[in-house]
């Protein structure tokens, strides 16, 4: 029962994810994508980074790697799958989750703490929270603007598949609190079922008490 953290060429948050999961007592190991998904993987993290230099579009190359077929199959069988930052871009490019993450409204790379409002607390990734809770985690991305045609977004809202929205410290979802111009401030979404989630902010960077806030722990507890 081990969570597989899938490393692609250019992943760079794999070790952070490992350390955060270990801190929470969750068994995890880093897996090179070309070696395939271990048969006994109890969960999958697609970590952040800059896989394949963000060529074409962030996540586009990794999303077409053979291991993604195995990850999609595991996801369909109910295995928890979490994509963070570049992992979120890979997940959306690979059809695990709806929408696309593209160039920030600022056209710049942004690395800063943000507030997120928990939109749906009835998922493995948000059980530790209450709906409406405000958590603080960092973002670090240049292509994090969530895009989805309006009618699809409406469906996503109706199905309660928006996990987090960018908000201010008081939980108000405003344009000022939207760091990258994401549609309706969407920061993270669920896949077809709630065992699959992606988000641009980094919960693994807000999980170790020694280095700051630990609000990200709740998200990673989805692997427990």
């Amino acid at each position: 029962m081990t969570v597989a953290i899938v490393r692609f060429g250019g992943s760079n948050c794999d070790r952070d994810a490992l350390r955060a999961l270990e801190h929470l007592g969750i068994d995890a190991e880093i897996v090179w994508h070309d070696d395939g998904l271990p048969a006994d993987a109890s969960g999958v993290v697609i970590p952040g980074g800059f896989s394949y230099g963000d060529y074409l579009r962030a996540g586009a190359m990794a999303a077409r790697a053979p291991i993604m077929d195995e990850i999609r199959a595991a996801a369909e069988e109910g295995t928890p799958v979490l994509g963070v930052c570049n992992g979120a871009q890979i997940g959306s490019e690979g059809g695990l989750t709806p929408g696309a993450f593209t160039t920030n409204r600022s056209a710049r790379f942004q690395c800063e703490p943000v507030h997120l409002r928990v939109e749906n607390a009835e998922t493995p990734w948000t059980e530790a929270f209450e709906e409406g809770d405000v958590i603080e985690v960092p973002i670090a991305h240049g292509e994090g603007r969530f895009e989805l045609p309006d009618d699809h977004l409406e469906t996503l809202n109706d199905e309660d598949r928006v996990l987090f929205r960018y908000c201010d410290a008081d939980g108000n979802v405003t344009d000022e609190a939207n760091p990258n111009g994401s549609k309706e401030n969407v920061a993270g979404v669920l896949g077809a079922d709630d065992n699959v989630a992606v988000l641009m902010p980094h919960p693994e960077r807000a999980s170790l008490p020694d280095i700051g806030p630990t609000d990200g722990q709740g998200v990673l507890l989805g692997f427990q």
């Binding site: 074409l56 586009a60 077409r64 959306s92």
Partner: peptide, 9 residues
């Protein structure tokens, strides 16, 4: 369809 474009955007 499969790589060069992302049909979402």
């Amino acid at each position: 369809e499969r790589l060069l474009a992302n049909p979402t955007i």
